[in-house]
Design a protein around this nucleic acid. Structure first.
Length: 657
RNA sequence: GCCGGCGUGGCUCAAUUGGCAGAGCAGCCGCCUUGUAAGCGGCAGGUUAGGGGUUCAAGUCCCCUCGCCGGCUCCA
């Protein structure tokens, strides 16, 4: 036996002996390009991390989620170095990896210009080319304070160490819970210190192994996420394991831009936001109106079948109602300011439907036999969204909720929540969304009312209902509204983006505040449990999500124009009109293009309008009482007998395919 | 609300960096009569987001307001 002490480590599931002083990189025989870091006993570490006896070592590859996060974090450092070389007065904020990229915040006198970003990107290329080494160095708090005396924001983070998660989102990458470390960027040959940053790591072995990155944009961001703090200048970038992966990401962004509902809404003549009306207030044009009505009609039918009763309530009300509900206490900032009527009486536009529904419940004595009582309304509400957050149909100032409030006994609640969740998911699937996960939002003790027991119980019932669906369940601690816990349904769209859709909330507050009661079978008066639920959330927003999900190519049952008849020459218009009559008799939305455009142009127009069915007819078809299909995907089916063509279209629409 | 960018016919974009506001598409009127993504010709359309200022002269420079875009904060 040699005198060199040995360590026993676990590598790829099997035990091995290695010499003392072996690094994680050596043990893994990492090339530093594909395997760029290690997980040691579950913790991510640099490849240069020296192993200890009993360590369990696993590789982290650059194309894994964890690997990309390390790559992006390292790229953020490179960017910060570039910024400080070009702008020596820039002070560092934080610079964490985020989904699809990274950012770094800087305190600079002047905001960055697009031109500055180009210069920074160029400087980053130089740093990457140099191949500077990332070297980890533990420091004491005291030493860190001395070294970083010129970086006030970093000093603040050192002071918050341990409470980093509260310091700011992303601050955890700067200061971990344990000892402080500084990462030095060292020149590959001279070993000279090029730059350093307070950072928990781990990092890539060198800057050279950054395969592809791009700076995306700059914007202001509040220091530590609070609007009370000064704004720093944030630069967003992205970095990927290969040039192809970067390119794929940029292509994805382009695709998302093409699907933007604001763009498609104008292109397809669905809706608009006239300046004359005001920010965040949409008008639906006839084609958008058709889609919206088809969505609403189907939803109405399903709700009817599921035992909901339909109510209507006004858009404005005296302030007293929202004092009673508590909305004025909690959400006054988000409400339109009041108008004074009737000798100083304050009236508000309603931001919520629930108080009105409660008044309906309370309008007469209620029996346990009526429960669960399910009140449904397409209720239009108005919320004064701050000017900077208004965003097309997804964040509007006026919108319509498919809102329902369910009043039931405590015993009925578990069953009701269970069937409700099934109902919600089924209905969303009918609209073409089928990839879901659930989120359970729990109490924020700072911002809530009610006893611990009642929260605990309601949360548990919601959790059980959620788990029963067999879907992924994500926790959202502290995410609940002040009056009760909630489940939300998150849907992934056709290009993998997630949207919050339906919400189901238990409410302990309102039945109390409105003193709601029913008479139980034993004659006693009992307080009902109240469940709020919206399926689309907002119809406008759901419309936008579907528009983006389908990229404007709605399934036939929702398409504003389901069929366009295209005559080969003008002479075939009457023939197509007769076909159209048969379709209209079946409730199909059909138009005949009798403009003086050429047939090819008509096809192009229908194609651009994303019409599901084009029916062409010329002498060949007319001669055998047939039509020729051109489908949205460009494929054809020629010489189809009229009755068969009608049946095919009707079936597609009826079956909501 | 905060920071930055932007605003020219319905849409997409020009206009020598202060010197006569122009094109394509869409629209309207004709001609063409056509087999699976743009036939041809003509006509019409703008107080350059609105208001104020600088200047001999403003789409262009300055100020205010409105709106939009990208973020931050917020989102019952």
């Amino acid at each position: 036996m040699s005198a060199v002490p040995e360590l026993r480590i676990t590598l790829a599931g099997s035990e091995r002996a290695v010499a003392a002083g072996t690094t994680a990189g050596q043990a893994l025989e990492a090339d530093g390009r594909t395997v760029i870091a290690a997980r040691v006993n579950g913790e991510p570490r640099d490849l240069a991390h020296e192993l200890a006896d009993g360590d369990v070592v696993e590789p982290i590859t650059i194309d894994s989620d964890e690997g990309r996060a390390i790559l992006r974090h390292s790229t953020a450092h490179i960017m910060a170095q570039a910024v400080q070389e070009l702008f020596p007065e820039a002070k560092l904020g934080i610079g964490p990896p985020i989904e699809n990229g990274f950012y770094y915040d800087f305190d600079v006198a002047e905001p960055f210009t697009p031109d500055d970003l180009k210069r920074i990107e160029k400087k980053m290329q130089e740093i990457v080319k140099q191949g500077q080494r990332f070297a980890r160095r533990p420091v004491t708090d005291e030493a860190a304070r001395t070294e970083l005396a010129g970086e006030p924001y970093k000093l603040e983070l050192i002071g918050l160490k341990g409470g980093a998660s509260e310091a700011a989102e992303g601050a955890g990458v700067e200061v971990g819970a344990g000892e402080l470390t500084i990462y030095d960027n060292l020149h590959p040959r001279t070993g000279e210190l090029c730059w350093k940053d307070l950072c928990r790591g781990p990092h890539l072995p060198t800057t050279k192994v950054v395969p592809a990155f791009k700076l995306m944009r700059s914007a202001a961001a509040y220091w530590r996420g609070s609007e009370k703090n000064p704004q720093l200048q944030r630069i967003y970038g992205t970095a990927w394991e290969s040039k192809d992966a970067l390119k794929a990401y940029l292509t994805f962004l382009e695709e998302a831009e093409k699907r933007d509902h604001r763009r498609l809404g104008a292109e397809l003549d669905l809706f608009s936001f006239p300046d004359e009306i005001g920010s965040g207030l949409a008008v639906f044009h006839p084609k958008g109106g058709v889609i919206r009505r088809a969505m609403e009609d189907y939803s109405r039918r399903r709700h009817e079948e599921a035992g909901y009763e339909f109510v209507y309530t006004p858009h404005a009300t005296k302030g007293r109602l929202f004092e009673k509900s508590g909305h004025l206490d909690w959400y006054a900032d988000g409400m339109y300011p009041p108008m004074q009527l009737d000798e100083g009486q304050d009236y508000y536009l309603k931001p919520m439907n629930c108080p009105m529904h409660n008044l309906i419940f309370g309008s007469r004595g209620r029996s346990y036999r009526e429960l669960p009582l399910r009140l449904f309304e397409f209720g239009t509400v108005y919320r004064y969204e701050k000017s900077g957050v208004v965003h097309g149909l997804t964040r509007a100032r006026g919108f319509t909720q498919d809102d329902a409030h369910i009043y039931c006994t405590p015993e009925q609640m578990p069953g009701e929540l269970d069937s409700l969740l099934t109902f919600v998911l089924d209905l969303l699937r009918d609209y073409g969304l089928d990839d879901f996960y659930l989120e359970l939002s729990t109490r924020d003790p700072e911002k809530s009312i009610g006893s611990d027991e009642i929260w605990e119980e309601a949360t548990q019932i919601l959790r059980e209902a959620a788990e029963k669906q067999g879907l992924e369940l994500v926790l959202d601690p502290g995410g609940a509204a002040f009056y009760g816990p909630k489940i939300s349904v998150q849907a992934r769209d056709a290009i993998g983006r997630t949207w919050q859709m339906s919400t189901i909330q238990v409410d302990f507050n309102l039945p109390e505040r409105f003193d709601l009661e029913y008479q139980a079978s034993d004659g006693s008066r009992q307080r009902p449990v109240m469940i709020h639920r919206a399926l689309f959330g907002s119809i406008e927003r759901f419309f936008a999500v579907l528009l983006e999900h389908y990229a404007g190519a709605f399934p036939a049952w929702l398409a504003p124009v389901q069929v366009v008849g295209i005559p080969i020459t003008d002479e075939h218009v009457p023939y197509l009109e007769r076909v159209a009559e048969k379709l209209r008799a079946e409730g199909i939305r059909v138009e005949i293009d009798s403009s003086d455009d050429r047939m090819q142009k008509k096809i192009r127009n229908a194609q651009k309008q994303k019409v599901p069915f084009m029916l062409l007819a010329g002498d060949e078809d007319a001669g055998k009482a047939a039509v020729s299909f051109r489908y949205r995907d460009g494929s054809q089916n020629n010489g189809v007998p009229i009755d068969e063509a009608v049946a095919e279209i009707v079936a597609t629409v009826r079956e909501r395919r």
